[in-house]
Simulated assay, not measured.
Amino acid sequence: MKPLKMGVKAMVTAAKARIEEIDTPEAVALLADPKTLFVDLRDPREREREGYIPGSFHCPRGMLEFWVDPESPYFKPIFGEDRRFILHCAGGWRSALSAATLQDMGFEAAHLKEGFGDWKKQGGPIEFPTKKA
């Protein structure tokens, strides 16, 4: 196997060096702020199994750039709102890479430093999807 030019750990480290990281306690305090929107990048199965941050907007990681770009046919108007966007995934790796990518696009977003796993561990509020009958 050909060695990679840069592995994922190095990519995450580089991304974290240039983006805004929000610690879990600070993020929990921001939950009530209507000008802040948590964006959940996790797979739908992760949300179903682990729950989600109340009021968070689900944007699967693979669609993020397309949903953020107003020129894209997939643009979601929620990303055009005047809000602070805090991205999160399970452990902070996908969200760090995503925040760096959005920064490269000219979109401002921070990320939940330790991800949803730490949110859950520290007792942050969690909701679960309603079960379908």
Score class of each variant (00 low, 15 high):
124 G>Q: 05
45 R>S: 15
95 S>P: 01
2 K>N: 14
16 K>H: 04
34 P>E: 08
49 R>T: 15
88 H>S: 02
56 S>W: 01
64 L>T: 07
44 P>I: 04
96 A>W: 12
133 A>T: 13
12 V>Q: 05
92 G>T: 10
11 M>A: 15
124 G>L: 10
25 P>S: 06
92 G>C: 08
16 K>Q: 12
96 A>K: 02
126 I>R: 02
54 P>C: 03
49 R>Q: 11
58 H>E: 06
5 K>S: 14
22 I>Y: 02
2 K>Y: 14
24 T>I: 13
99 A>C: 07
72 S>H: 08
101 T>A: 08
14 A>F: 04
9 K>W: 11
83 R>E: 01
131 K>M: 13
129 P>C: 09
126 I>E: 11
117 G>H: 08
25 P>N: 03
53 I>R: 05
86 I>N: 03
7 G>Y: 08
50 E>Y: 13
104 D>C: 04
21 E>P: 09
99 A>D: 09
30 L>K: 14
6 M>F: 11
72 S>W: 04
16 K>R: 15
88 H>A: 05
20 E>N: 07
54 P>Y: 03
4 L>M: 09
63 M>N: 07
104 D>M: 12
85 F>H: 00
74 Y>R: 10
103 Q>S: 14
20 E>T: 12
127 E>T: 04
37 L>I: 09
10 A>N: 10
23 D>V: 12
45 R>K: 15
81 E>Q: 11
60 P>A: 01
105 M>V: 09
60 P>V: 06
109 A>S: 10
23 D>W: 12
111 H>D: 02
42 R>K: 11
44 P>A: 03
28 V>A: 08
66 F>R: 08
95 S>K: 11
10 A>Q: 15
1 M>K: 09
14 A>V: 10
60 P>F: 07
95 S>F: 12
32 A>D: 13
75 F>E: 01
73 P>I: 13
59 C>T: 10
96 A>P: 08
9 K>A: 15
127 E>C: 12
61 R>Y: 10
5 K>N: 13
31 L>G: 14
130 T>L: 13
109 A>H: 00
28 V>S: 05
81 E>S: 01
53 I>M: 02
21 E>Y: 07
111 H>L: 06
114 E>V: 06
86 I>E: 02
102 L>F: 11
125 P>V: 14
21 E>F: 06
73 P>H: 09
49 R>N: 07
91 G>W: 07
102 L>P: 00
93 W>Y: 15
75 F>R: 04
23 D>F: 13
62 G>P: 04
51 G>C: 11
65 E>V: 07
118 D>N: 14
111 H>S: 01
37 L>T: 03
65 E>M: 08
121 K>S: 13
33 D>W: 08
35 K>T: 14
94 R>F: 08
35 K>D: 09
53 I>D: 06
53 I>W: 02
40 D>I: 05
